[in-house]
């Protein structure tokens, strides 16, 4: 029938479109991985001669490895800071009422939507005014502050899914607020907190716009990569990016395990008939 065949055409068209979008999303990643093994240092087509040279150069690159160390340190500090303030912020938004609560909510979430340059510059002015020397510490403070937004939203979402009756029962049975906090609230939020922590860690590892303005003498990994990219095409960047990509994939799998263990059931959806 006429309508059926046009519906078929449309759904084939939709499938082609979907595949094209996926191709667009994955083309640069594919290029990156392929050219990290390319024998020549310029990225011409076709790639010539497979080599592990760029990976070997990478292994001996002390500046790069110390930047990796710096980034790990900053990410860890930023994660602890963001969680330390994001958890009480989520609890406050959920169960306390205070003047200026609406403004507070917007302000906490602002760094999430604001271009990094504005947050970076504003913090730079604060640190300069306070007479603080720029270092890894200022970067960690910047990342931590900006990422309180992520901790707050993730933990707030966890609170919305939580079974309130447990907390109420605990309080009714005479437990103090703090006993309830440590024995009921925290264990229930455990997975939301771990998830938020992983996300913050990864975002901090990749952050560059805020770091750009708060950098002291020591580079983080993205800033080290940035300074090399500005000098031109450097194939060992392909190699380090491939490693970071594989590392990210492992992180996704870990995150996936955490989420499925939380027992989130996939929504049972009725497949639509075409």
């Amino acid at each position: 029938m006429n309508t059926t065949s046009s519906a078929h055409r449309r759904s084939r068209w939709l499938l082609i479109q979907t595949m094209a979008v996926f191709a667009f999303l994955y083309l640069p990643i594919l290029v990156l991985i392929v050219y990290s093994f390319n024998g020549e240092s310029v990225g011409g087509f076709p790639p010539r001669g497979w080599t592990l040279r760029w990976y070997r150069i990478l292994m001996d690159d002390d500046a790069l490895w110390s930047a990796v160390g710096n980034s790990l340190l900053v990410a860890l500090a930023a994660m602890l800071l963001a969680l330390a303030f994001g958890l009480p912020a989520a609890l406050a938004l959920d169960r306390a009422s205070f003047p200026g609560k609406a403004v507070f909510r917007r302000l906490v979430l602002l760094p999430l939507i604001l271009p990094g340059i504005i947050t970076g510059l504003s913090l730079l002015m604060l640190f300069v005014t306070a007479g603080m020397k720029l270092s890894l510490l200022t970067i960690a403070l910047g990342h931590g502050t900006a990422l309180i937004s992520v901790a707050t939203t993730e933990i707030f979402a966890g609170l919305q899914k939580m079974d309130r009756a447990q907390e109420e029962a605990s309080l009714d049975l005479g437990a103090t607020n703090w006993q309830t906090f440590w024995r009921i609230t925290i264990p229930n939020l455990r997975l939301a907190i771990i998830g938020a922590g992983l996300l913050i860690f990864t975002l901090s590892m990749d952050e560059i716009a805020v770091s750009f303005f708060l950098i002291g003498r020591d580079n983080t990994l993205p800033l080290e990569i940035w300074s090399r990219l500005r000098r031109g095409i450097t194939p060992e960047i392909n190699a380090v990016s491939t490693i970071i990509f594989l590392f990210s994939l492992v992180m996704i799998l870990v995150w996936y395990r955490v989420r499925t263990r939380r027992g989130e059931e996939l929504a049972e959806l009725v497949p639509l008939k075409p």
């Binding site: 996926f22 050219y35 990225g43 560059i208 993205p222 990569i225 992180m251």
Partner: peptide, 27 residues
């Protein structure tokens, strides 16, 4: 998950990959 994965690839690295693709002696 396939849509999410590119988000985990560093911003800089993706921009750099486009440079490798679009350059005058690029891919």
């Amino acid at each position: 998950q396939l849509v999410i994965i590119p988000l985990w690839v560093s911003y800089l690295v993706r921009a750099y990959a486009w440079k490798t693709i679009l350059g005058s002696d690029g891919v």
